[in-house]
Deep mutational scan, measured.
Amino acid sequence: LVRYRTISKIPQITLNFVDLKGDPFLASPTSDREIIAPKIKERTHNVTEKVTQVLSLGADVLPEYKLQAPRIHRWTILHYSPFKAVWDWLILLLVIYTAVFTPYSAAFLLKETEEGPPATECGYACQPLAVVDLIVDIMFIVDILINFRTTYVNANEEVVSHPGRIAVHYFKGWFLIDMVAAIPFDLLIFGSGSEELIGLLKTARLLRLVRVARKLDRYSEYGAAVLFLLMCTFALIAHWLACIWYAIGNMEQPHMDSRIGWLHNLGDQIGKPYNSSGLGGPSIKDKYVTALYFTFSSLTSVGFGNVSPNTNSEKIFSICVMLIGSLMYASIFGNVSAIIQRLYSGTARYHTQMLRVREFIRFHQIPNPLRQRLEEYFQHAWSYTNGIDMNAVLKGFPECLQADICLHLNRSLLQHCKPFRGATKGCLRALAMKFKTTHAPPGDTLVHAGDLLTALYFISRGSIEILRGDVVVAILGKNDIFGEPLNLYARPGKSNGDVRALTYCDLHKIHR
């Protein structure tokens, strides 16, 4: 019993810090008490220290592992850092350059016999395009090294910054494609005289377009951006097909006994025919423009016929181009109408809503002055909100995010209106959640004399007048207030005048 009563005193000691020596009952000389009392004092002292730490809000209350900052290894790049964003855009520009100039170089340097010394005699450094290609190869190699040090988000939505895990993730992902696209074939085969082989191998750079397509997928929600990307894709495919079309004609031209190829026909049409040795002929500019003209006309199913396939190889390629053109029509131009419709969806919704308003007016036989006010209010409210119901949009977000959005939407009023000066951010967040926005066209009466005042109004834009009878008592403008002081009276009061809008007004109100 003594032991039980001794232990039962522990909660009292913990909360009230009572010393055991003052209790005459606990001072009985028993061996059990002498053993338990020192333990009680020690526990009391420890609990006292913990309570003191909690009340003082000291940093040592938290466990040590929670006080440590997340460790980022040296030379690790955050995937959302500004440097990584700028670097990704730079790589994107280099990939676009590669997609345009690599097929052009591979096709127009394929057994090209233009006048001038061969590239091997001039030297590697004197070729501007080769120098640019070398810079692109170096940048792609540097990009691989950067990807080995860039964080990523795993399946659990955690940012991984450990170098080993980053390397394994990159090896399992895009490393092989990036490595093949970054191989400097110019340096590996330079001086061997195989410019045709170098041009063909350099087309491996186009593998990076797969990554670019995935990154550009984030802009699919913007109709104008999608339309622009589709047109660029169409032009890029036409450019690639033009390079292939020229390569076919250029390879067949020296081996044909009869002059029936499209390059021969082009030379005869523009007065620059090929001679018996295969030299001469149109310039590279004429060849490229004509090839691009043929691919565009074939892809769009126009086909004027002034550039036509004559050999079997050219006919087979033309059939493939027609098939590609039909697929592009289905996948690209078939979506253009939907994209344009999405661009004008706001206008369509406006006309639909206006039609419903006019049908309501016609069905209920609203008189002319009231009908005009109804239409003007709808037009003004639509121009202010673009038909978007803010309350319906915010309803799907958590309250903390709703408060931040409301604070942002009402920031101008909260910053410049005098009653809100000096208020804490928590108070402003709470008030912003209570605001209701209303609009009024010129001549609209917001409050009639004798109406119950259940709200306090803040003028965000425009001006109003307060009338008693036919006498203008006051004219209020931006950041002015009218209405009933909230919670100042037990019952809502009545208006002693009319409140009429002089201009288009936007008002925020808080109800009782």
Rank of each mutant, 00 (worst) to 15 (best):
Y65E: 05
K66G: 07
P70M: 06
P70A: 07
P82Q: 10
W87G: 03
A99M: 01
F101A: 11
L110S: 15
L110N: 15
P117Y: 06
T120L: 04
P128F: 15
V132H: 01
L134M: 08
I135L: 07
I138A: 04
I138G: 02
I146Y: 01
V159N: 01
A167E: 01
A167F: 07
F171W: 04
G173D: 04
D178L: 01
A181P: 03
F185Q: 03
L188K: 09
F190M: 12
G191T: 09
I198S: 05
G199H: 12
A204M: 07
L207A: 14
R208V: 09
R211Y: 01
V212E: 03
V212T: 06
S220E: 05
E221V: 01
L227E: 01
L227T: 04
F228D: 01
H239S: 01
I244P: 01
M251C: 01
E252V: 01
M256H: 12
R259Y: 08
R259I: 03
W262G: 01
L263Q: 01
G271V: 01
P273A: 01
Y274P: 01
Y274F: 03
N275P: 01
S276Q: 11
I284V: 09
Y288P: 01
T290D: 01
A291R: 01
Y293A: 01
F294N: 01
V302Y: 01
F304W: 03
F304G: 01
G305R: 02
L323Y: 03
G325W: 01
L327G: 03
N335S: 03
A338P: 06
Q341H: 14
L343G: 08
G346K: 15
T347D: 10
Y350V: 03
T352W: 11
T352Q: 11
Q353I: 01
P369G: 08
Y377A: 10
Y377I: 01
F378E: 07
Q379V: 07
M390P: 07
C400Q: 01
L401A: 03
D404N: 03
H408L: 03
S412K: 07
L414Y: 10
P419M: 04
T424W: 01
C427N: 01
L431Y: 01
F435P: 02
P442H: 01
D444S: 10
H448S: 07
A449Q: 10
